[in-house]
Amino acid sequence: MGPQQLLEKFNARIEQDIRIEPKDWMPDDYRKTLIRQISQHAHSEIVGMLPEANWITRAPSLKRKAILLAKVQDEAGHGLYLYCAAETLNISRETMIEQLLSGQAKYSSIFNYPTISWADMGAIGWLVDGAAIMNQVPLCRASYGPYARGMVRICKEESFHQRQGYEILLTLCRGSKEQKAMAQDALNRWWWPSLMMFGPNDDQSPHTAQSMKWKIKRFSNDELRQKFVDICKQQADILGITIPDPDLKWNDERGHYDFGEINWGEFWNVVNGNGPCNKERLAAKIKAHEDGAWVREAALVFAAKQKKKNSDKEVKLETV
């Protein structure tokens, strides 16, 4: 089949919602876009463990500690599902890790904000995981099979993350005045960065149109952000805390909430490496990678030794 025919066949599949699988022919740019998006997504899961791991030893009860541990373990699992999905596109795990550690690859900017109080564990679950779910549910129908299948698994597990976060805030909001103030403070700090998680406005998002044509993305950044704002308002009301946006109000005509302008200067500043925790996060990942080097090495040596032992045994058996 000639290149033109291959492209036509690929486009027809996308058109008919037939998934693309690893060994199928695909345009180079489709492959590159997927590698970028899936590896960024994997890195986000892995770096995303850090802000929460910060509170594991100081969780207020054994129950909360167990829940937080399970959640952080899930993030590790999600990172692994996604690295494996990216690897089916012919990029090695080592290359992706190198790109993360060298700062060449990006991860979600939200994880460059600090987690300074226990209420932040609630706000991350409710808002950060909530925004992630909003992004991820449509990705379960992404045109690339391994990505879509990974996302199905992730979305199933992510639901507990959001609910446990909301429950943390609910508990604080029903507690003392000081506890409720902690919840409000966390909402104040996490609200805007959460809205930024959906990425730049549609007219500033260079990849969106092509990704939607390829059915990797199903909704634009602004569509998803609007959906998120619409559902969060009521959820904040149930908690009895206030979203820190004076422009947030119901627009009857649009059937949506209007909301204030996002500080895009701050967004790009964090994306470009100057957020409050960019350096700390990367340093923690590099340290973990270096400290773990001997474990990876030992595992390989152990495996080689076992293999040799077993083959020696076989030889002996044969000669008996």
């Binding site: 494996c84 990974g150 595992a299 152990f302 495996a303 076992q306 293999k307």
Partner: peptide
């Protein structure tokens, strides 16, 4: 179910 990296079958 998916794939993963490991040094040997047991791991």
């Amino acid at each position: 179910a998916g794939s993963l990296h490991a040094a040997d079958a047991q791991m």
